[in-house]
């Protein structure tokens, strides 16, 4: 694993500038082209370190966009460029390194391993890199701030959506990143917990000098956003 750190690929991808060029999802093509959007079929640069909010009503391709940005779906025309290079031009090992070090994600469908406990789900991500970015004490601290300490040893299968969402948030925050991509990260949380989560996320992003791209259905004032887009 020592080789991973020596990889030149890791060193030059420190900026993580994300650019979209005429991005159009193939399945939503007609729908997207009929109405005006700040994102689809435009040229956009997400400046590193910015807090970006993308407001997206249902059915406009919000989750699809998140998957394009994180490069787990490829059914689009146009380009997604990372540091000036197509996502497709990075090989699988480099992409894995980037997902461990440069870009983190909170999926709308949360994607928790049900065969692991809540704590193991977080630990999996923490020890995926040979030298973990944060300590397990830090994990405990974050769990305490999000009121999930008591469910850490519960199986992923038995967690409620709200609990899963908070575990997914903590899991996304145990790694280093330049961008945090979030898809409706507070959808299953009550106001109090959403506030706490937003605070934690804001702190962690500032600590890393990182930016985020957050998609949500509505307007909100949880963060001091640098830019707003309507999907």
């Amino acid at each position: 694993m020592a080789r991973l750190r020596k990889k030149p690929g890791f060193l030059y991808i420190t900026v993580m500038q994300i650019q979209l060029e005429n991005l159009v999802p193939v399945p939503l093509r007609d729908k997207v082209l009929q109405r005006s959007s700040d994102i689809w079929n435009r040229e956009i640069t997400f400046t590193p370190g910015h807090f970006v909010k993308i407001k997206a009503p249902s059915g406009t391709g919000k989750t699809t966009l998140v998957h394009y940005l994180y490069h787990i779906r490829y059914d689009y025309t146009g380009k997604v460029l990372v540091d000036g290079k197509l996502w497709q031009s990075y090989n699988k090992e480099v992409i894995a390194t980037m997902r461990q070090q440069q870009v983190s994600v909170i999926f709308q469908d949360l994607r928790i391993f049900e065969q692991l406990t809540a704590e193991e789900n977080i630990e999996l991500k923490r020890v995926m890199t040979p030298q973990p970015y944060c300590t397990s004490e830090k994990v405990k601290e974050m769990a305490a701030r999000l009121n999930v300490t008591h469910i850490l040893s519960q199986s992923g299968k038995t967690l409620s959506y709200g609990e899963r969402q908070r575990i997914a948030i903590i899991r996304a925050l145990v790694q280093p990143f330049k961008w945090l991509i979030m898809d409706e990260p507070f959808s299953h949380l009550d106001e109090e917990n959403a506030k706490r989560a937003a605070e934690l996320i804001g702190e962690e992003c500032r600590a890393r000098g990182a930016g985020f791209i957050l998609t949500d259905l509505d307007h909100d004032t949880r963060f001091a956003y640098d830019s707003h887009y309507n999907l």
């Binding site: 991973l4 994180y70 787990i72 699988k92 090992e93 894995a96 390194t97 980037m98 997902r99 461990q100 994600v105 994607r111 391993f113 065969q115 999996l124 991500k125 995926m128 899991r171 790694q175």
Partner: peptide
């Protein structure tokens, strides 16, 4: 499915 999620979360094929 599990392996695909692992890769999504950043597990390298090498790992």
């Amino acid at each position: 499915r599990e392996i695909q999620l692992l890769v999504t979360l950043g597990t390298a094929p090498r790992q």
